[in-house]
Design a protein around this nucleic acid. Structure first.
Lengths: 136, 136
DNA sequence: TTTAATGCAAAACCTTTGCACATCA
DNA sequence: TGATGTGCAAAGGTTTTGCATTAAA
């Protein structure tokens, strides 16, 4: 995985404390984060930053394809590093735990779909919902 | 497909003009609708209803499993009849056109996943993004 | 008549915008 | 220094809540 500083360098974006701190948060997170959580984490790490800066940074990094927006049906966006290998999410509907699913196995599904429809398919999202071990 | 009145009867909810009109809108729509679009359609059909009633109706019908919430990464919810056969959506990233995908072909994916993880998987969502014929 | 639904006003959330000031390269 | 990023205040868009009134069963 690319380091935070490497990412900043590649984008050509200015290396500001806020951006470095926000990217660090993602590099240390195992699941997609929403803006509010990031604000909290920054505060906890004594990084003084405005909420607006967080939103702006999330958008900028998404535009530069450093981050990827995802939605879990919560009415808000979450973000994750787009450098992560292609994967989907398995979400526990009881406790909210999120697990990554590597090898989505959807290549076949997508290929068949490509043949059946007139669309040129560029990407897909998938979320699986269920109960984790603890919540079953 | 169940008729609007049948749906109302099955839920035990009161048959109010607003609810009937809203369900009618869904019975005549080929794609998931957001609250705002519904408000517009009702207005066009001269059904006088408050926006809040639309939101409340959408929530009530979702609670009763008559409607299903879906998200297309727009920062708002859309709803569709949950009586529709299991399907996913193919969304044109250029013009916003939405096509249903019947036979999702994800049973295998889900079954394999079930074996590989400790979750009990209850359902999945999938959205495919690409370009429709016109926009290619 | 009793319970549930509606309308209106107000607010809660999440997110964006404008603008002056600060900071990185 | 010049371009870009930040903070603050304000606003925009979507959705929810409280409460008095109205309508369904």
């Amino acid at each position: 995985m690319k380091s935070t500083l490497k990412v900043m360098h590649d984008t050509g974006l200015k290396k500001t404390p806020a951006r470095i701190a926000i990217l660090d948060v993602f590099h240390h997170s195992s699941k997609p984060l929403d803006a509010d959580t990031i604000v909290d984490l920054l505060e906890k790490h004594d990084v003084k930053t405005d909420r607006v800066t967080v939103y702006r940074t999330l958008n900028t990094l998404t535009d530069f394809n450093v981050l990827k927006k995802v939605e879990f049906g919560e009415g808000k966006f979450r973000y994750e590093l787009s450098s992560l290998p292609h994967h989907h999410h398995l979400i526990c509907t009881s406790c909210g735990r999120v697990e990554d699913i590597a090898e989505c196995g959807m290549e076949d599904v997508e290929n068949k779909l490509q043949k059946r429809t007139s669309f040129v398919i560029k990407q897909h999202n998938a979320e699986f919902f269920g109960l984790c071990t603890k919540c079953q």
